[in-house]
């Protein structure tokens, strides 16, 4: 049991726990906060895997922007809780069973089939260096320049779309 492995297991435990917390919280605000924790944990995993840029992006975009937006909407709509209903009584047990099967199946498949040789990073390697970051930037702006620009267009389109969606039509009652 190397320190790395111990760290990994602890973090994995935290990640699963926060995910389950999001799943079972009755209050949507708690769910959102659990999810923020989960995202931060994942960001630490990214650092462990030698992807500092992605880790930062994860924290600023996901944990920061997106989840703030979620909380904002939850509070705007006042939809923290939903009243209990009794539609689709078989949905919950069936979904649970199937999800467990899915998890087992995919684990088994990945364990037996998808085996990229080698392990993730040799112990003690300096991973999160500036050189590493620079190399990734070279890849992004050389090989993936066009998709990158398209992404910006996508964001613009999304912005315009949102504005159009929530805009109040002329003469429409609020």
């Amino acid at each position: 049991m190397t320190p790395n492995l111990i760290l990994f297991l602890i973090l994995a435990l935290v990640a699963v726990a926060t995910a389950l917390g999001m799943l079972f919280s009755k209050n949507a605000v708690y769910s959102a906060l659990f999810l923020v924790l989960n995202f931060v944990t994942v960001a630490v995993f990214y650092l462990l895997l030698g992807a500092p840029f992605i880790a930062m992006a994860q924290i600023t975009v996901y944990a920061g922007a997106i989840m703030v937006l979620f909380l904002f909407v939850i509070m705007l709509l006042g939809a923290e809780r939903l009243p209990d209903t009794h539609v689709l009584p078989w949905q919950k047990p069936l979904a649970t069973v199937l999800t467990v099967i899915l998890a087992l199946e995919s684990t088994y498949l990945l364990w037996t089939k998808a085996r990229p040789s080698g392990a993730v990073l040799p112990p003690g390697a300096e991973v999160n260096t500036v050189d590493n970051l620079r190399a990734m930037a070279m890849t992004l702006f050389n090989d993936y320049l066009l998709p990158f620009e398209v992404t910006s267009v996508l964001l613009l389109v999304a912005m315009v779309g949102v504005i159009v969606l929530v805009r109040r039509e002329k003469g429409q009652k609020s």
């Binding site: 190397t2 790395n4 492995l5 990994f8 994995a12 990640a15 699963v16 995910a19 389950l20 999001m22 799943l23 989960n38 995993f45 462990l48 895997l49 949905q91 979904a95 649970t96 199937l98 999800t99 467990v100 899915l102 998890a103 995919s106 684990t107 990945l110 364990w111 998808a114 085996r115 990229p116 080698g118 392990a119 993730v120 990073l121 040799p122 112990p123």
Partner: peptide, 23 residues
């Protein structure tokens, strides 16, 4: 040194939890 399978399995578990949430 952590085998990559650990990450994959963690990822699969998180994914399953997400699926359960949707359903």
């Amino acid at each position: 040194m952590i085998p990559v399978e650990y990450y994959i399995i963690l990822s699969a578990i998180l994914f399953a939890i997400g699926v359960a949430g949707v359903l």
